[in-house]
Design a protein around this nucleic acid. Structure first.
Length: 136
DNA sequence: CGTTTGACTACGC
DNA sequence: CGCGTAGCCAAAC
């Protein structure tokens, strides 16, 4: 899953999954990671700590020209992961708000309303992905 | 080629 | 809820 030789396909899988998130909904780095199968010899603890960061790494390298909805991925706390007030954070927030996503006074979204439930089963099967862990 | 960085998370206080 | 910390390791510098 995370070996260098597989990095390319890992990134592409992440981008592919992100493209499945509909407007007005959000996912998290950890949720996307939860859909990827760990390698057989991967230590569960190591996996848990590593996977979300790799999703972040993949997103950081998102091709800007392919209209991938990168802004629909936030962190497990329901907040944008860029420093508040930064150019990136402002852009991400504006994109989400333009889709109807609401942020409360602590800059958090309400997962009960905007959490993405994951791709449909057919998509998961076609990509060999696991059902995503629900967001809380 | 050594050091720092980073689009994370779970957990403890 | 907010803040700090450990765990992680390929990129970026």
């Amino acid at each position: 899953m995370f070996n260098p030789p597989n990095a390319r396909s890992f990134f592409e899988t992440v981008w592919d999954i992100v493209c499945q998130i509909p407007p007005g909904k959000v996912s998290t780095y950890g949720q996307i990671a939860s859909m990827m199968s760990p390698e057989d010899d991967m230590d569960p603890v190591r996996m848990k700590n590593l996977a979300p960061r790799w999703v972040g790494t993949a997103l950081r390298k998102t091709p800007r020209g392919k209209s991938i909805p990168w802004h629909r991925v936030i962190n497990s706390q329901g907040k944008i992961s860029f420093p508040i007030g930064s150019a990136h954070a402002n852009e991400q927030r504006q994109l989400l708000e333009s889709e109807g996503v609401v942020f409360d006074q602590r800059d958090k979204v309400d997962f009960a309303i905007v959490a993405w439930q994951g791709p449909d089963d057919a998509y998961l099967a076609s990509k060999g992905l696991l059902p995503p862990r629900p967001l809380k």
